[in-house]
Amino acid sequence: MPDSPRASLRDIAADTGVSVATVSRVLNDHVNVAPRTRDLVLQAVERRRLRAEEPVRTRTVYVRCPYVLSDYFGLIVSSIAETLKLHGLRLLLDAGESAQHSDALTGLPDQDDVDAAILLLPPEDGDQLVTLSRTGFPFVVVDPRTPPPPDIAAVSAAHFSGARAVADHLIALGHRDIGVIAGPEDWLASDARLAGHRAALAQAGILLTPNRLRHIEPTTAAGRRAAADLLDQTPRPTAIACFNDKVAVGTLQAARERGLNVPADLSIAGFDDIDLSQATDPPLTTVRQPLQEMGRIAVTQLMRVLDGHQPEALHIELATTLVVRGSTSVCPG
């Protein structure tokens, strides 16, 4: 019997429907027990012994990242993998852009070898996430593309405050003609960052006009094209706030092609603080997202769900930090 005899007797009694006293008599080999009752108790003891000897199956977490594992998504996924390992969980990774076109969520609850999921920037809409949630399948969303439904656990960065810090920084340097290269219009992060820029500009009495705003896919090539469009205007903006560091690199390229000096002629700011932001010339002023912490918090939230607890905070926003480097300076003239 296990270390807690009293609890074990109660367990066997509950399994067999006999009293604790009867279980005790059987286990102590008393004679005044009916043979049928003795067999019933001994069989229950044996079943419990066999269950205790069965190897415990390692729980598996399906991690879906339908994007290239760059220095943005790669940091988050690496952090998730390391934290899952610390908790003794196995990772099943589905990554790459081809995963965007697969119906990955529908069959998740029916997979016997998958216990839970972490979904990074899922392309599916909120209704599909709600449908998955109603099956009882546990999952957490990291960096949601659209506003997450209220009862679904999600982890993201504080996009609004981070973007507002960028605009406040540029305004403090004297810039009043600021262009914004935003992300896709249907992304939650893009909406929040644009709202942060607008809030800072509005407080300073500056209107972000349509000719100073571009919505693009957040790539270096798209950033270069959008920046060229802004910089070919007369007058051109004195500063450009970019959706992410890759867009900022494209903006640096467009500025150089036009013979502009950064930051003397044009200030440029990014977002994310990936390694690339420190490798440019000049290094990028940007907003640091706690990417690795996002991965760790996502696993922590998922562990609470797996253990049968409701997370105390369903939607967690992690603080961002403005990192000032050489790509921004006082407004020229």
Rank of each mutant, 00 (worst) to 15 (best):
P138A: 03
T135N: 04
R164Q: 13
F160C: 06
R145P: 02
A154K: 10
P138H: 06
R164Y: 11
V140G: 01
V140R: 00
F160W: 14
D143W: 12
A158Q: 08
V142Y: 10
D151R: 14
F160V: 06
P138M: 04
T146P: 02
A165R: 01
G136K: 05
A163N: 08
F137E: 09
V166N: 07
R164W: 05
F139L: 00
A153S: 12
H159K: 09
P147I: 15
P147R: 15
T146D: 07
V141P: 02
P148Y: 02
I152Y: 00
A158P: 04
P148I: 10
V166G: 05
F137Q: 01
A165D: 07
A154D: 13
P148V: 03
H159D: 14
A153T: 08
S156R: 12
P147Y: 07
P149S: 11
P149V: 06
P147Q: 13
P149I: 11
I152H: 00
A153Q: 07
F160L: 12
A165S: 14
T146Y: 11
T135L: 06
S156G: 13
F160I: 09
V166L: 11
P144W: 11
F137L: 07
S156W: 08
A153M: 04
D143Q: 14
A153E: 05
G136R: 07
A165H: 03
V140F: 00
V141M: 03
V142S: 08
A163T: 10
I152C: 05
R145A: 15
S161P: 03
R164S: 06
R145W: 13
D143L: 13
F139I: 02
R164T: 03
P150E: 15
A153W: 04
H159V: 13
P144T: 13
A157P: 04
S156V: 13
F139Y: 01
